[in-house]
Amino acid sequence: MMQVGLNHFLVVSTALFSLGIFGIVTRRNAVMVLMGIELILNSANINFIAFARFGNFGLQGQVMALFVIILAAAEAAIALAIVLNIYKTFSTVNVDEIDTLKD
């Protein structure tokens, strides 16, 4: 096998991204959809840091990855609050059964 370089990290992040998309598209539970989103955010972060490392951009990419992590934390908190409200209203969190805009 060849020396581990930028391409190896990009392939790993692409695999994570694809699996995240697959989870979002196929799973019915809203919390599972959220997990897929976290996978995609992680893959984006790997790309940021890999390009920062191999493109000689210093620490800029790492700071961007830090901002992405902060946004992911805020997004998870808000999304779970929404999911809890949905569960209270519909008694289910399956995204294919929640199809009304008003109750």
Partner: peptide, 22 residues
Amino acid sequence: LGADFIAMVQLIVYVGGILILI
């Protein structure tokens, strides 16, 4: 990739925070 600080933040925020939240 040489990002030691980000790795620690990943562990603290994702494993300690977001995963527990999920």
